[in-house]
Amino acid sequence: MKTYRLEFTQKLPVDLATAWDFFSSPLNLAEITPETMAFDVTSPNIANTKMYPGLIITYKVSPLMGIKLNWMTEITHVKEKEYFVDEQRFGPFAFWHHEHHFTEIDGGILMHDILHYAIGFGPIGKIANAITVKKKIREIFEFRYKKVEQIFGHK
């Protein structure tokens, strides 16, 4: 199974505590995900929850053609105000490991995402990644970049 790696960075003119509070709240993920994904957090009693190791988060998501899929991730690692990692437990990918890093810089913070993912299905998965999946993931992160700038401003 082929595994892919993508990285994304963004500078924000906010302090680390503000960034951490926003990004460590599972409900804010829906706010920075394109509406076309029909992203809906379905975990019960998650409204005031912050990230912690072992946290299970469930979603409904429509990544392609409006087909609703269940997605479950687990927050596997957290170092407060530095990073957290979410890993798919079941969902649309054969493998999903997403690191979210936060570093203080002059006048704000630097966010750095490292994503490893795999699609499965052998050669069909490689073709799907080349034609659709990689592009779709990049579009999601581009949307997030713009939305986060609307919320916090840009550096």
Rank of each mutant, 00 (worst) to 15 (best):
V14Y: 11
K79D: 15
T73M: 05
I56M: 14
I32H: 00
T73N: 07
Y59F: 11
G66S: 02
F152S: 06
P92G: 08
K147Y: 02
L110M: 12
D21W: 01
L55M: 10
V148Y: 00
L115S: 02
H97G: 02
I57K: 01
F143K: 02
K68R: 13
G125Y: 01
L55N: 03
P44R: 13
K50F: 09
Y83S: 12
T33R: 01
R138D: 10
Q88M: 15
K50C: 06
G54P: 03
F152A: 03
R144H: 04
I127L: 11
M1R: 09
W20D: 01
A47D: 14
P53K: 03
H112P: 06
F141H: 09
W96N: 03
V61Y: 06
E82L: 13
I46E: 03
E139C: 05
Q10L: 14
K155L: 12
Q10W: 05
Y59T: 04
A17Y: 08
L6F: 08
L64A: 14
V85D: 08
I124Q: 01
Q88Y: 11
A47L: 11
M72G: 09
T42C: 06
N45C: 06
L12A: 08
L27C: 12
H116N: 07
A19K: 01
Q150K: 14
F23E: 10
D21Y: 04
E139G: 13
E139T: 09
E87K: 15
F152V: 04
L64R: 09
E149A: 10
L27R: 14
L16K: 15
K134W: 01
T58P: 07
E82W: 13
K50N: 09
I46K: 05
T49H: 07
Y145W: 10
